[in-house]
């Protein structure tokens, strides 16, 4: 009986722990995800090699 109670308590504690962890917005993970998406949308990886020369400055003066 005691063992069963202890087990039940442990399960409740673990579940409560999960809830606590998930309450907070994971800012660092979100930044990483944002960077991955931004790189894809703006194609930053390819640009570094391919278009190292920006579209001629000074021409529009």
């Amino acid at each position: 009986m005691m063992a069963r109670l202890a087990l039940g308590a442990a399960i409740v504690a673990i579940a409560a722990g999960c809830v606590t962890i998930n309450i907070y917005f994971p800012a660092a993970a979100a930044e990483k995800a944002a960077d991955r998406i931004i790189e894809e949308v703006w194609q930053l990886r390819e640009r570094e090699g391919a278009a190292a020369q920006p579209p001629a400055e000074g021409g529009a003066k």
Binding site: I11, I14, A15, I21, P26, A29, K32, A33
Partner: peptide, 19 residues
Amino acid sequence: ALGAVLMCFALFAAAQGDL
């Protein structure tokens, strides 16, 4: 209980690792 622990690790990984 083991299942709960495993699920907790999975959630923890999801929360702390990557979105």
